[in-house]
Design a protein around this nucleic acid. Sequence first.
DNA 1: GTTAGGG
DNA 2: CCCTAAC
Length: 778
Amino acid sequence: MEARSRNFGFGFPGYDGCFPKATRSSRGRGDHTMRKSLEASDLPKEMCFFELLATVAGQLLQEQDGEALASRSLVDLKAPKMSASSVLASGMRSCHAKGSETAIKAKEEEATEASKDLRNRSDKCYEPSGANFCLHDNSDPLHGKNVDVKPLEEPIKAYSSRKRKPSGSMSCQGSAVVSSINWHTKTQPIAPRSDQCTSKGKGDCHEDAIPGHSVDKKETISWNKQEGVVDQLCIPQCQEIDLLAPFQDIESPLLVSSGSSEETPFSLEPKSYSTVAFENGQGEVREEISSWKVGDDDDNSSESTVPKSLLTKSSSMSYNRAMKARRCTNSTVRRRGLGVGSKRKCHEMEDGERSQNEKSRSGKVKNKMCKLPFPKDDNEQSHNLPMGILVDDDGSPIHCEREKSSSVMSSPITASPTKQDDTNVKLSIKSFLVPELMVALPESATVANLKKAVMDAAMSLLGGGLCVRVLLQGKKVTDETESLLEAGISDGGKLDSLGFMLEPNPFPASAGVDDTFLVLSHNANQTSSRYPVVSKGSEINTGSYHVGPSEGLLEIDANSSGTEMQSTTVSPSKEDGLVHESNGLVIPGSCALVRHSGQANNSPNGLAVVPFGPSAGSIGINKRRIRRPFSVSEVEVLVQAVEKLGTGRWRDVKLHAFPQAKHRTYVDLKDKWKTLVHTASIAPHQRRGEPVPQGLLDRVIQAHSYWTAQQAKQQSMETKDSWIVSLLTTILTTVINWRHLPGMEGQQKQSIRDRATSKSRKRWETEDSIVSAKRVAL
DNA sequence: GTTAGGG
DNA sequence: CCCTAAC
């Protein structure tokens, strides 16, 4: 509560003369005190005197409540103070103040039209609150068709596509269709996805027994009509996800055959693993797709080894370095595949955040998010893997030029503005890393053994099912109903801070896969017969296994926890010739212990796909959110909401004004209001950032003053309430004590009673005068 | 989970 | 925008 301001002003636009309900503090403590007082009044009934007091007290309290209720009843949030179009127009004026008059006019007309049309739109936010302001998403509400401020005199009926929780934002302005890449195992289909991943398009990816641990099995992964490329078992050096729409009904399987029939545990012939081909529905190899595989010349051939495909170059290098170091020092060596690179990258991102923003703003392409009304039907039999789709407004797919750079650790995700449209978010994923793996094997083991061990570890991981986690600025994006734009995954956002993390599927056999995860492969039943992954904190595998009959132990630490960002790194410590593992596994000290780590020490579980995060090369460290300055239109909406709801009800403000803007939390709104108040109080030349129209700032001042006054008033009332309660309690307590005072003369009792009464009355009167004085002051 | 406030 | 205390 900002009690500092005593500059009380009234009569700002939108102010309806009352505040809707008590502040949190009053709702909480006040009521609590009240309850206490009422409880305290639970006294012997034979005390007529007390009953009288209690009755009076009750009446007093009721009177108070009645006042409050009457006051609250005056609040009519549903009565629009400003029509949507007027809000829009006003916002536009401020937003496009520098634009031409005609442009403004056109926008206004468009907005008016749009507001008229609001109820007929199925992709608009359903706002049940009745507030007459609403910012649906983070798109500028004043931009064209994205009419975000709308009248809500009555709830806009949600259409079928909106039959989901209001938080889901599926607004799609264009006819864009998001296709998805569908994966499932033939033997064990992936549970139908229940989120936006499903689409009407049927694209099935058949995976004939992804070689979880069994290298003998042939793996056939297919997906349909994907434009993206998953290089080599989804661990590409350079992978670009492009999203195509609309769905076609052809199957364009990506074939990844693992044709190895090797039986020898430690002899891995990589060639036998990766046979990747893209086919269309007719079985023809799609040249187009292979042509996408630029930048991974070294790895995209069918001769690429699986380990190589599973480990990025850097991780492989670190792996090798680790081995090397191990030989030299005979100690555990940890390598972080992404350490330096990601660190540098992160710094670049931090430093370049603004420039990036500016770049994209000035940039040629302004993206507009298209989100598809994916059926949430769990019965949808296509197990879709949404990879996102880039489409034009007309739904035609966008083809982007593949970057020719083959730099492994270059910016893993790049925005590739290729078309003059406002629709698409184009991502290029350049590398994945496998999760942190730990392999322990005897020094006598051969390199082939090591390769095999790593292979099995990776396969075990894959066998358990992998999920894709989307990270933004190091933070997991958990709400999959968020649009890319809302999530900040747009050209306007920080695409270079976007990351993908593979992590073991926490629900490998579950039918209802967590919406948060995208299952890349799913053959949970395919447990390793020999070398399951030791996966800490994971439900996938928890055992440790011997490698071979007499080869010592192979331990693979997938370092995987389905959800925790916290590292579950098992740091094997050698003591007395033994390596104690946290699971209780004891590894003979003679084992060479190689820790393969694609991450920094406190890396999240699973594997980082993209190096990002500012420090330590860890994606888990950079938890700071992207700075997304409020636009003038957002400020407008915020101001209006606060005018209506007041300060101190930020959750309501959020729900009413920014229901769909996931990136605007009520804390953000509160902070923004704070800065707005501050901004309004300083000289214009001291202000920074996008200038807020003075008119808005004036409203901020007015609203702030008013609500501050209201809160002070409310507090006074509460204080008075508390004094009433205190008075009654004192009186009643005194009475009780008085009645039970043994051997006291009636005159003495009367004296005590008189004193108590007069004392209480004095306190009451004193407090009353204070309240009155405050009221006058207000 | 919300709110308020400092940083 | 983050963090924390208080509720």
